[in-house]
Amino acid sequence: MRRAVALIGLLGIVGAGVSLSVLPTTKTSAAASDNRTFLIPASDGYGVADCLSTKSECGKIVADAWCEAQGFAKAASYGLADREDFTGTLSKARPAASVEQPLVITCGE
């Protein structure tokens, strides 16, 4: 009986080792052809709106870091979002007095 339990335990350990050896060893990431666009409120609390909205060098760093955190390689584009990006299909909207325009980051390859 002890031998049967020991043999089953040994086979379980060997089976676990084999299954772990077939798992991919590289970090998974988004497919290279996939692009994804993120809308970020301008008043997100991190203070990166100035960098992203002016398309300065610090904006590139912030956008690339954002994309890497989301599983993408780098930012394809970034800046202020167009009104169509966040209002949908509204034809005419009443202009808001103090609403900040959101930021957009498009991540890709």
Rank of each mutant, 00 (worst) to 15 (best):
T37Y: 02
I8L: 15
V22C: 03
I40T: 12
G45T: 07
I105C: 03
V5R: 12
A93Y: 07
G79F: 01
A97M: 04
G59S: 06
F38L: 06
T28D: 07
E100L: 14
T89V: 07
K92G: 12
G17C: 02
D50Q: 13
D82W: 00
A30P: 00
T25P: 05
T87L: 03
A30N: 08
Q70R: 00
F72Q: 04
D34E: 15
S43E: 10
G59R: 12
V5A: 14
S98Q: 06
L20C: 07
A65T: 15
E100D: 14
G108F: 03
S19K: 10
Q101K: 08
I105W: 03
G45V: 08
A49Y: 06
T37R: 01
K55T: 08
S33I: 12
A75K: 00
E57V: 11
L10G: 14
E109P: 15
S43D: 13
G59Y: 11
A63Y: 01
T28Y: 01
C58K: 14
L52E: 09
P24D: 07
G9N: 04
S91F: 08
L80E: 07
F38T: 04
V14Q: 10
G47V: 03
N35W: 03
E84I: 07
L10R: 06
Y78N: 05
A16S: 03
C58G: 11
S77E: 13
V18N: 04
K27L: 09
E57W: 06
A76T: 10
L103M: 13
A49G: 04
I8M: 15
D50G: 14
R83P: 00
